[in-house]
């Protein structure tokens, strides 16, 4: 077996202290191979985004083992980590600085990492995400939601990372734009050999984008399966089957039969 690009072992995340402690993620373990696209699905509050935030270094309050490309990661990450692992956020309206032009947004990571040659990099990256040079000096308020998300993807890509963490990258977008962004992400993965972790509550998106997925509920991984079995509806666990049913649209009889999985 090839070495895992991302390894997460016994990940535990808690928020708060004492009686108010919330155990958001418990004993989560999974591995992602290089170049693979791995989906994390679950309902709201299942802890899927929390796993992603612990992986990205945004939330330092976790325990367990997290590794990237064979290297165990600590709670404080260094620049070398950020160079290899970038994140795309859910809401493109909140993830771009309202007072910075696209140019400034993309120049910032280049300056932080002292990569140099900012002009060429920015032009090239903008073209890669399907935005022409005419977008370069616009402010975010002059862009549509889809264009903003492209800028956010460009910002993640400009460091030429190997791993992209995608936190519901299309759920804040129009349905027609969602497809464009998903196709873009798919093409970028093929071109750059990127490894993805995609968090989503949308099984169709995960089925389209990912090779394998883990289903989460109440902070635990319920089941890991590949996309083929998901498409054929061959889930082992009741919870996953229920999630599949729920994703096929609303049906009163089906909804009444739903159980609460604690």
């Amino acid at each position: 077996m090839t070495q895992a690009m991302i390894g997460i072992e016994d990940l535990d995340v808690t928020f708060g202290y004492g009686a108010a402690t919330v155990h958001a993620v418990q004993n989560v373990t999974f591995q992602v191979k290089p170049g693979e696209s791995f989906g994390l699905v679950g309902e709201s509050g299942s802890g899927k985004s929390t796993v992603l935030r612990a992986m990205s270094g945004l939330n330092p309050d976790w325990s367990g083992n997290v590794s990237l490309d064979g290297q165990t990661l600590g709670r404080q990450r260094d620049k070398a980590f950020y160079k290899r692992c970038q994140m795309v956020f859910q809401d493109p309206y909140g993830s771009l600085h309202p007072r910075h032009t696209v140019d400034r947004i993309l120049a910032e990571p280049v300056a932080i990492h002292g990569l140099g040659d900012a002009d060429k990099r920015i032009d090239r990256t903008l073209r890669e995400v399907g935005l022409g040079p005419q977008f370069r000096f616009r402010f975010p308020h002059q862009l549509s939601g889809g264009q903003r998300q492209r800028v956010a993807i460009a910002r993640a890509l400009i460091l030429e990372p190997r791993v992209l963490l995608l936190d519901e990258p299309t759920s804040a977008l129009d349905v027609s734009v969602q497809a464009e962004i998903l196709n873009l992400l798919k093409r970028l993965r093929a071109e750059h050999g990127l490894t993805y972790i995609l968090v989503s509550h949308n099984l169709a998106v995960v089925a389209y984008m990912c090779d394998r997925l883990a289903v989460m509920n109440r902070g635990r991984v319920v089941e890991e399966l590949d996309v083929e079995s998901l498409r054929r509806g061959q889930a082992q666990q009741d919870y996953t089957r229920q999630l599949l049913l729920a994703s096929q649209g609303y049906d009163r009889a089906v909804a009444d039969s739903f159980k609460d999985f604690a």
Binding site: S56, G57, L58, R77, D78, K79, F81, Y82, K83, Q86, M87, F89, Q90, D91, G94, S95, L96, H97, P98, E108, P109, I112, H113, A152, R155, L159
Partner: peptide, 17 residues
Amino acid sequence: NSDFISAVRLQGASPTR
């Protein structure tokens, strides 16, 4: 706590920056 600050933190920016 907004996403654009998280994003720049994830680029490795220092608190001063």
